[in-house]
Amino acid sequence: MVLLLAAACVALVIGSLVSDQFAEQTVAGLATGGIFGSLALALVLIYRATEVINFAQGQMAMFTTYIAWQLMQWGIGYWGAFVLTLGIAFAGGVALLAFALGAVFVRDWTFERMGIKQAGGGVIAVVIVTIGMLILLEGAAAWIWSPEIKSFPSAFPTRPIRVGGVAFSIQDLGTIGVALGSVVVLWVFFQFTKVGLAMRAAALRPFAARLVGVRVNAMLALGWGLAAVLGAIAGLMIAPTIFLQPTMMDTILIYAFAAAVLGGIESPAGAVVGGLALGVVLNLLGTYVHFVTSELRLPVALGMLLIVLLIKPTGLFGHRVVRKV
């Protein structure tokens, strides 16, 4: 797998050296791929922490982007709004899980008091709840801020810089930088801090983690908070290109899903690599294969996903779960 990736990278570099257009399209693909990757990583974080496929992840990102827009309307500068929004997103993610856990506790306690036997609905009930959240957030954003398209400022200048004959857009490079930067920061956090270790323990072996004194629920809430922050970054980075509207993240979320599954839903590195690969391949296909028109982009991406899944049913970086019967 690593060899295959290395070969793909070499091919991209050679292609970029040979053709200017190829280089431009590769960088643009990496930029959108970085967005897919961040959101995919958010999905993976939540999946690893709570085994929930969060269908509302894109809408959470969209909502926080609207909050950033609102802050800027109130006269706060771009970076001020950026930092504030990330803070709000984090608090929102933590509060969401805390609220859900609290609500479930109260429900079970009340039902027990009333003598009603409560059977869990399993995964499907949770999936439906996140779908409900998706509908709710999209409706709420349209209600509060109107469904009209709004323009959103970019952190980076829109003019290109030239390297040799190649024109790179600074915005693309900035997006790649921010997306990959946040991934590296997260990696350092998980690998080298005590809280990061505790979070990994809580996700991997909740009961054992609790025995050695990890506050598992707090760690899960932290995971949701971090995922919300990643989503917010993705939203803030993509909004200048695709504009601000309640449905802006719908297709992005689908690509993020594809990226997460491509890499293996349990693998953070897989999500990022999957996102980047998807972004580059889609962009190159759109440029060089004329059959792939804009309405076929999504089917092609999902077709690739299906093929990968059929060959490796747990994604590129996923491991087979072997269980005793």
């Binding site: 609905g121 409900g132 509908i135 999209e138 409706g139 349209a142």
Partner: peptide
């Protein structure tokens, strides 16, 4: 949409099965 979302969440929360 807000009402539908809330209704879906509430129903699944109160009646997971």
């Amino acid at each position: 949409a807000v009402i539908q979302g809330l209704a879906v969440i509430l129903v699944m929360f109160l009646l997971p099965t």
